[in-house]
Each structure stands twice: as C-alpha cells, then as structure tokens.
Design a protein around this nucleic acid. Structure first.
Length: 274
DNA sequence: AGCCAGGGTCTGC
DNA sequence: GCAGACCATGGC
C-alpha cells in the first residue's frame, strides 16, 4: 500500500482510544492493518492511520478533509470520558469498558452501512469483508491507487442477480438489489433517517426486502448517528442474558449503541463461555 | 460431515 | 405472536 508520509494531519486524543479495536470490532469491514498502518477506503478516499503516544495521525489526507470528513467519521467530537464515567457506576459495564472502552462508534456512509449489514446476515466477519471487498473491486470506482470506492446505490440498482454472482454473496443478492432500487429511486431517503425518531427510521428501513430490525439498527447506529439504537445479534442476545438477565442497565440507555459495541467486543474477546 | 456465522422471510399454528 | 424450515457460502 502506498502511503504518502508527508501528507498527514495529527490530532491528539484524550482518554481511552484504540484504533485497532475501533476498526476491528465488526462495525466496519473495509479496514486492514498492513503491519505499519491501518488502511482503508471510505468516502471514496484511501486513508492510512496510525495511533501512537496519544496522537492519531491521518495520512494521504489534509486538514481540510479531516475537518469535513474524518472528524465526524471517527466520532471525535463526542466526549467518551463522560460515557465511560457514567456507565462505570455499574460493575459489569465497567469491566466491559475496561476491555472495549477504546472503541469509537464510527459514523459511516449510510448506503455503504446499509448494504454492508445486509451482507452481514447469517455470515461471519472474515467472509463479510471478503464479499464487500469483491463488491467494491467489481462495481466500485477505481481510485487510481489500487483501491476502489464502495459502489453507489445507483450503480448497483442497474444490476441483475446474475451480475452479482461473482461476489458470491448467495441469497443476499436479491436483498442488495431491492435496497439499491429503493435508495437510488428516492423511495427511501437514507439521510432523512438520521433526523427522525429511531422507531420511525427503523420502520422505514425494514420496508426493504431482507432488512429486519437487526440490520436496520446496525445501519442506524453505524451509519446514521442514532447512538440510542441497540442492534441485537446472536452474541449480544447471549451476552445480555448472561450479564444482565436480558435487561440493559439504566445507566447505559442514553448511549445504548455505544455500550452495545463494548458488550459485543467484550463478549467476543473473552468468549464469555456462553 | 456437520455446524456456525453481527438474520430475514415464509408458512403454519 | 411464536416456532421451525429454508436460504448460499465457506471456514473449521
């Protein structure tokens, strides 16, 4: 991977922060570590990152792009210290946060998030990454540096099931096409969903064939800024039952989505002997 | 070989 | 409303 060392912008981070956990905790699927940098494509741009000595360094970008794109993408304006302090009143949440408190819940592009979590269903993370990479290389825009953007809804809406067969996404192909059609036509306006109540936004997303509550909530949490969304996958269901008897502690409710991510990562890393 | 993976739909009670 | 079959694919 070609990283332009001279073109960079650095930002100090206060409080717990882990680039590895943030990019590797199953909320985003296009990031990888090349041994020196964290690399990935978002917003049709190749970005490389490093975190050392409390400073987050962005390569292949500018201060202007940082201000307009990456600052929001990495959720750097939110005070996570307050969240960690609040949930720390609960012993179990504090333990989960000791494990996963370096995670930032990303704010990814809505269409990419929706499409990615459609692909995630009944699937495992390595294969989700593989399919999304293949989808991007096959139908995304060539950025000229060996990287590809995530294909737009408009691009995918023009395809057929057979066109999608090379990416090996199985039964999910028809779901992708229905989502692409509804988004590209304007039938569903993703950006609008960030500003309406969670329940209304979820109802709108589940109009898409193949999108249920879990995929909708992942889209709302990781792509549309609804940090009160609480996606329930198999890991979370088991962990919630074991840790809290199925009921989220009240301290966590305002930031349910962020806490969900802590619990997810904690459960997976410790395997929780479920 | 069989089970599972950041699920959802459809059918039958 | 809820249980169960079924859906493609690949790693273990």
């Amino acid at each position: 991977m070609i990283v332009n060392e001279s073109k960079n912008f650095a930002v100090p981070i206060s409080g717990p922060f882990s680039l590895t956990d943030t990019l590797n905790c199953g909320q985003a699927f296009r990031w990888f570590n090349d041994g020196e940098y964290w690399c990935g494509v978002a917003h049709s741009r190749f970005l490389a990152l490093k975190f050392e000595n409390g400073v987050l360094k962005f390569y292949n970008t500018t201060k202007l792009e940082y201000e307009h794109i990456w600052r929001e993408y990495f959720d750097l304006d939110r005070d996570y210290n307050i969240i960690l302090k609040t949930i720390g009143n609960n012993d179990i949440l504090r333990e989960a946060a000791n494990f996963a408190g370096g995670i930032r819940v990303l704010r990814q592009e809505p269409w990419e998030t929706l499409c990615s979590f459609i692909i995630s269903q009944n699937n495992n993370i390595p294969r989700i990454k593989k399919i999304i990479g293949s989808l991007s290389e096959t139908f995304g825009k060539d950025l000229g540096d060996g990287n590809f953007s995530f294909p737009s809804a408009e691009t995918l809406a023009r395809l057929s099931i057979e066109d999608l067969s090379p990416i090996r996404c199985g039964f999910r192909a028809k779901y992708i096409l229905d989502a692409a059609t509804k988004v590209a036509s304007g039938d569903i306006d993703l950006n609008l969903l960030s500003s309406i109540p969670l329940d209304d936004a979820r109802k709108e997303l589940t109009r898409i064939y193949g999108v249920g509550d879990k995929v909708a909530d992942c889209t709302l949490l990781f792509g549309l800024g609804h940090i009160e969304a609480f996606p329930k996958d198999v890991w979370i269901k088991r962990a919630m039952e074991k840790l809290f008897g199925g009921i989220l502690p009240k301290e966590a409710i305002p930031y349910a989505g962020i806490v969900q991510q802590y619990i997810f990562h904690y459960a997976r890393m410790t395997k929780l002997s479920l």
